[in-house]
């Protein structure tokens, strides 16, 4: 599934009548089976873009089409074929690990036995066998992250939207989760839109890194990441990785400075 975003603009009504332009004329084709990372300073509208693509938020203007490359004439509306993994996870605290993972299947009306079987397989695939009956509150951050991932993957939707999913994890857990996600991508080849503000993470995971400007969010540059797959942690220390990091760092640096100045101005405004 391709995600085609055309001239998408998102405006929030701001305090005192001054509207906030979160995204401005964002245009990009997120190609099938490609892992795209959206990299930008906070407030640049990356999360907003995911919500629009996921059909959870209408865009102020512009268009999002979901297109099966085999049937280019039958575009579908945003939200079709996608599922989100949230930064705040949004696991249902009263449901066990298994019931959290089975939630989407349950909503589709799949019989209990079948959905539990499917969920069990997904729980196993993220390495949580034995924790099926635990509540999310009993798990560590990394384990909860796996539950959230399994809950999204069980639906087998072709588009995976990930909103800074690893931002809250400690450094070691984050590295392991990144590797696992890279493996999952190698197996399933979904279209992935991955929002992050960590440069290394974007390069390590992505086929392309879309560097965004400070608010209003626009595309500043698209970096192609031609590191081979499967990705391994050793690649982080290769010259190719370093060159990409350098490039992305310089692009993002300016934007982060602009973003910080904007935030300072917003705070000191009357």
């Amino acid at each position: 599934m391709d995600v085609i975003v055309e001239e998408v603009t998102q405006v929030w009504p701001g305090r005192g009548g001054a509207d906030i332009v979160a995204l401005e004329r964002f245009t990009h084709r997120f190609a099938s089976r490609r892992f795209s990372c959206l990299l930008g300073p906070s407030g640049c509208g990356k999360s907003t873009l995911l919500q629009i693509v996921g059909g959870l938020e209408p865009a102020t203007s512009g268009k999002v089409r979901i297109v099966d490359p085999a049937r280019p004439r039958e575009p579908r509306a945003p939200g079709a074929g996608s599922v989100m993994v949230w930064q705040s996870l949004n696991l249902f605290p009263w449901r066990s690990v298994l019931d959290n993972v089975a939630f989407g299947l349950e909503m589709q009306g799949m019989p209990r036995r079948e959905r539990r079987e499917r969920a069990r397989a997904l729980v196993a695939s993220v390495g949580l066998t034995g924790f099926e009956d635990y509540l999310p509150g009993q798990l560590s951050g990394g384990m909860r992250q796996r539950v959230a991932l399994a809950r999204a993957l069980v639906l087998e939707r072709p588009i995976l939207l990930m909103d800074e999913p690893f931002a809250a994890l400690d450094a070691q857990t984050k590295i392991i989760m990144q590797e696992e996600l890279a493996h999952i991508f190698d197996r399933t080849h979904k279209t992935v839109l991955f929002v992050t503000h960590a440069i290394e993470e974007a390069i390590f995971l992505g086929d392309e890194v879309i560097v965004m400007s400070a608010r209003p969010g626009r595309i500043k540059e698209v970096l192609a990441v031609d590191l081979p797959r499967p990705r391994t942690p050793e690649m982080v220390s290769t010259p190719a990785f370093a060159a990409l990091f350098d490039r992305a760092f310089h692009l993002i640096r300016e934007e982060v400075m602009t973003s910080m100045a904007q935030q300072a101005a917003a705070l000191s405004a009357p």
Partner: peptide
């Protein structure tokens, strides 16, 4: 109720 949970449920296909 946490809006995030409602949005997540909606995204997972709940009516």
């Amino acid at each position: 109720v946490d809006r995030g949970l409602i949005k997540a449920a909606q995204d997972l296909g709940a009516s």
